[in-house]
Nucleic acid binder design. Structure first.
Lengths: 262, 262
DNA sequence: TCCGTACGCTGTACAATGTACAGCGTACGA
DNA sequence: TCGTACGCTGTACATTGTACAGCGTACGGA
């Protein structure tokens, strides 16, 4: 697999058959299978949860299952398809809170929170580009559930998709920062705090504060406010409120009296 | 380099020295240098602009410069540091519109547009995680310039950084989709449209519309509205307006009469 | 003028990864 | 009972970043 970690990079027909567990073509012959697809998914997910996407190698998963690397290829066409079924399975396991009857802000906040939990449980899911989503049962159920949070408002179908895309995109981007921080810390054997502690003084030696007054003032203020340069939890709270405020002007445009209602 | 494409993955001291072009330690001895750092940056940027981050290999850049791969290591400590100076150089070349005196919405829209232009000119810059930004002259100048767009409003320093981070994060995420689409198309030798044309009918065979009414209705509506499943240009317009609306409630909180003013 | 040495440049080599390929053995259907 | 489809495996190759050692150059000091 090349560097962009993307879903649906394999053959669509083969991938969809795998996602929907289409039954095998003919009667079984030969030796009994020692594993099954779900066992492979489970092992691969366990490895990736703890070691990140860089730890997801066919050899590593095979080792976990006490099997030769090439054995995996009898359960999965390739690594790209494995990633697809892993992600769809994770989508399928997400909890889906029933917020029927609640104000739209509460409903959307719940959707955001469910995705945030997914990204916290499986950090690698935040770093995968789902431009071509895995079209499996998990992803479809997730999409259906999340659209219900936007149903019944005065939005047309395209606007519903727009709002959901914007919201999920924000949550994923925020989670990606955390996942990247973890991966970078492992890669450089240095936490963000350690890196700033090393880079800050070096920067101070070459940087003229008079030439960049705002940058030095705001940069140091932001740096000391949160522990490091970026605080994803703070950015999440801040961004989610701004974003919901922004959606409010769209959702409540015609009926300002309905503020906060479903 | 491992899979996450991140900045500042190398030694901070070595990287900062490179970014700020600190003069070499002692008097030159031995053969004349055939190249210089800027030539390497230029060649690497040209390669990456056309072939994406996957095309950025030391061998490929060396070939461009008609030099052996290992020669590059006399100009740059490693690939990680090369990426840093490439990015900082790109930041340094960005145009910085003077929007002094304009309403804050116009100023922030200009900042967004400048970044959008960067990502359009150098798509790979959108796919790099700048969790630990390259602390070079280009990045600092960019930060200073963008903060001026938020100066003079009733925001404190931390809020200024919050707003800028949220805005830039949105623009980058939007651009990353476009860059990923390009990379995926090249990787799979299939455009997004072709992929949907292949996957759509396959999905229709296994998907029960009655079980997922919203997903099928909204999904197809969104799909036909824009040509494909995602239209980054549409998502940009939609998201930027929502986001500025959301910032408005913060910026204009105390002085609602100042709506749209600087 | 001449030489020692610092340094630019290069070829070779290695580790890690996805996976093509061919072989080996198993157990089901006839 | 036997042929064959199929599960599993070892080997092998291409692609990466880059460590290492060698080779030759040209400057600083005599």
């Amino acid at each position: 697999m090349r560097s962009p970690d993307v879903t649906s990079a394999g053959d669509p027909a083969r991938t969809l058959a795998l996602l929907w567990r289409e039954p095998s073509t003919a009667a079984r012959r030969g030796p009994q299978r020692g594993l099954n697809l779900d066992a492979v998914i489970e092992a691969a997910t366990a490895v990736t949860d703890t070691e990140g996407l860089t730890g997801l190698t066919m050899r590593r998963v095979a080792q976990e299952l006490r099997v030769s690397p090439m054995t995996l290829y009898t359960y999965v066409p390739g690594k790209a398809e494995l990633l697809d079924v892993m992600l769809d399975a994770a989508y399928g396991r997400m909890s889906r809170t029933d917020t029927t009857g609640q104000p739209w802000r509460v409903r959307l906040a719940a959707v955001a929170e469910e995705n945030r939990t997914l990204f916290a449980t499986h950090p690698w899911t935040a770093t995968v580009s789902t431009l071509r989503p895995p079209l499996g049962p998990g992803a479809i159920a997730k999409y259906e559930h999340e659209l219900t949070a936007l149903d019944g408002l005065s939005l047309d179908d395209v606007e519903m998709d727009d709002c959901l895309t914007l919201l999920l995109s924000f949550v994923q981007t925020n989670a990606r920062v955390t996942a990247d921080a973890r991966a970078t810390a492992q890669l450089t054997t240095m936490t963000d705090e350690q890196w700033w502690a090393a880079a800050g003084p070096l920067l101070a030696r070459v940087l003229d504060p008079a030439a960049y007054p705002l940058a030095t003032r705001v940069g140091s203020a932001a740096g000391t406010a949160h522990g490091s340069a970026h605080d994803p939890a703070h950015a999440y709270e801040f961004g989610l409120h701004r974003l919901l405020d922004g959606l409010a002007t769209l959702i409540e445009r015609a009926t300002p009296a309905a503020s906060g209602n479903s």
